[in-house]
Write a protein that binds this DNA or RNA. Structure first.
Length: 594
RNA sequence: GCGCCUGUAGCUCAGCUGGAUAGAGCAACGGACUUCUAAUCCGUGGGUCGCAGGUUCGAAUCCUGCCAGGCGCGCCA
């Protein structure tokens, strides 16, 4: 409010003086109370272009501002201080007017107006559906969902997307693992392949499948069991003996065999079935778990559809036709070096199989075809080496740089009594999202996972998190909300919220601090949305809650004069609405009582 | 070796893209409930902002070089 006023005066001033550009006015909140409510270092920055001393400039601007009627009404005092700061002390009227504006906004306080926004696609979580979600996924889930909520509230059009990596070798291994557990449930001695998934959850999947299909696939799997019993060397001709699987290697290796199961139409059919059905069941579980966590998606996109639908071949051919891709050494490469990558990247391997990169290109082409103008991907830090090539690829596809925005989230370290542990899906050594939620609840988990900057590696000690759950900052914020709800329950019905006139209205520093905080909410939303930093909403919520708790301690709402009661009730309602909004943006509930 | 992220109080982290004497929570200590919820509030102690230069009126913030930690650098996904 004051910012615009000052900006207007500065613009006019700059024009009169013939300065090339009117500087953008930024008001900041001084650390020192004696420095007033707002301050601006503008004149110090202006000193160079104006070629005059900052203090002289400040004095001139002070005089110009004081001549403005609006300024005279809203600002009690303007002072020149220090090396050339301009300090503003607001009048009581300014607080009342600010409150009136926020009351008028109602539940929409802070909501961004829909600007000329591109249609944004936000993709996150995106995993192989072959294991439970761990806390690392949980962190990205919480971050991405909060970012979605924040951007949407800030005025952007955002569509949420989950990319299902349901194609390739990992899923073959998963399918065989499910098949093996299924066979075992019939007492058939078929071990889970060494390069497969050993976790207990695979048994659950197998049991569900058995319930659906009975013993339909048992004969085929008996063949496999028989071959396995005969030893690896007994595999049918053409089937190379499997290289020993790298037990520690999560990703597996293209050169390693999936397993040494015999090649037989019935076996292939069974494996294909278990892969597909197992994948679907895992996905159902994930969707359910994410929904329980408050995270939903508009689109679940299957990688397999790109391979079977011909989209992948089409995009590769297109790139070849356009000269962006070329053939060399039996493989097809994309010339990503033309767009800033260090080396060109393979699309189709010498053996004819497409790379993951090629599928990703087809996927992003699909997003562009669906009309999205800006693509945001949230990846873990372990994939950041992949960013330049993907940026290059999307630039080639879209014809303009900057279409793809990759946000790199740092990882979650799992600690146990201060000791760092390595998470491993295969060994089952990990904390799942479900375990975290069971330990501390959805609200605390979401707040905990999103309150730190995504650029920061997060240390998680489950035992400690559980122990400290009652100290989680989320309760501090929720408590403020519950306290306001309690006031609303107790206040006499004849007290109506209203901004009354009078010298006692919004006169205390506690009310004023709260109002100033509330006023900065809209800016906080814009800033944290633009900078993709939802953790700032968490920080803001804590500060707002602190301002409220102090207000609550010093200012009573019930049992004071009618003018004060009405005004403070209005302040409580606005505060409640903003706390509610903050919590909602983070996917956390706002209880009416605690 | 190269690239990205990080280094701020005993611990966990903020620090609003350069502002005035660097903040919060936890932990430690001392206070405050006959009044709208004490899951709260008030106070005390606690710092070479990794180190060294540079840019300027002014640097935790920007640049360079070191040091330390994490993550990457495939015809893997």
């Amino acid at each position: 409010m004051i910012t615009e006023l000052v900006q207007r005066v500065v613009d006019r001033w700059a024009e009169e003086q013939g300065w090339a550009e009117a500087p953008a006015v930024r008001l900041e909140r001084p650390a020192e109370e004696a420095h007033g409510d707002y301050a601006t270092p503008l004149c110090m920055q202006l000193a160079r272009t104006a070629k005059r001393a900052p203090k002289i400039l400040a004095e001139e601007l002070q005089a110009r501002l004081q001549a403005e009627p609006d300024v005279a009404r809203l600002v009690e005092r303007i002072e020149v201080a220090g090396p050339g700061f301009l300090n503003f002390t607001l009048s009581g009227t300014a607080y009342s007017e600010a409150m009136a504006a926020m009351v008028a906004d109602g539940a929409d306080i802070g909501r961004g107006t829909m600007r000329e926004h591109p249609h944004v696609n936000l993709e996150w979580v995106s995993v192989n559906p072959n294991g439970p979600l761990h806390v690392g996924h949980g962190r990205y889930a919480a971050y991405g969902d909060a970012l979605y909520r924040l951007m949407t509230f800030g005025g952007s059009r955002v569509s949420r997307e989950f990319y299902i990596n349901d194609y390739g070798r990992q899923m073959d291994r998963f399918g065989r693992s499910v098949a093996a557990r299924y066979a075992q449930s019939f007492e058939v001695d078929l071990p889970v392949p060494a390069d497969g998934y050993q976790g207990e959850y695979v048994k659950d999947v197998a049991a569900t499948v058995r319930g659906e299909v009975g013993d339909t696939y048992l004969p085929a799997l008996r063949l496999v069991a028989a071959a396995a019993a005969a030893g690896p060397g007994a595999a049918p001709a053409g089937q190379a003996a499997a290289a020993p699987a790298e037990a520690e290697d999560e990703e597996g290796d293209e050169t390693a065999a999936v397993s040494d199961w015999p090649s037989d139409p019935a076996v292939d059919e069974a494996v294909a079935f278990f892969r597909k059905r197992g994948c679907d069941l895992m996905l159902d579980g994930m969707r359910e778990e994410l929904e329980g966590f408050g995270v939903a998606f508009d689109t679940w996109f299957s990688e397999t559809t790109l391979h079977v639908g011909g989209a992948l071949e089409r995009v590769v051919k297109d790139l070849l036709d356009k000269g962006e891709a070329f053939e060399e050494g039996g493989a097809i490469w994309l010339r990503t070096t033309s767009r800033g990558d260090d080396k060109d990247r393979v699309l189709i391997r010498g053996n004819g199989r497409p790379t993951y990169f090629a599928a990703d290109i087809a996927y992003h082409e699909n997003k562009l075809e669906r009309g999205f103008e800006h693509l945001i991907n949230i990846w873990g830090a372990d994939h950041h080496g992949y960013v330049p090539r993907m940026n290059a690829a999307v630039e080639i596809l879209s014809g303009r740089p900057g279409t793809l925005e990759v946000i790199i989230g740092q990882l979650v370290n799992l600690l146990e009594q201060g000791e760092l542990k390595q998470m491993s899906t295969r060994r089952g050594e990990m904390v799942t999202l479900g375990e975290l939620v069971d330990a501390i609840g959805v609200d605390a988990a979401r707040f905990f996972l999103v309150m730190r900057s995504h650029d920061q590696t997060l240390d998680l000690d489950l035992a400690l998190a559980q122990q400290q759950s009652s100290e989680n900052s989320v309760y501090y914020v929720q408590y403020a909300h519950a306290r306001i709800a309690s006031i609303l329950r107790n206040i006499p019905a004849e007290t109506k919220p209203a901004i009354e006139a009078g010298p006692e209205v919004f006169a205390s520093p506690y009310e004023r601090a709260l109002i100033k905080r509330l006023e900065s909410f809209a800016w906080t939303v814009q800033d944290s949305a633009d900078r993709r930093m939802p953790h700032r909403i968490a920080a803001f919520a804590q500060e707002l809650a602190a301002d409220f708790h102090v207000f609550y301690k010093h200012c009573r709402v019930i049992g004071v004069s009618p003018a004060l009661a009405s005004s403070r009730l209005a302040l409580c309602l606005v505060t409640k609405a903003v706390i509610f909004r903050c919590l909602e943006l983070l996917g956390v509930s706002a209880p009416e009582s605690m």
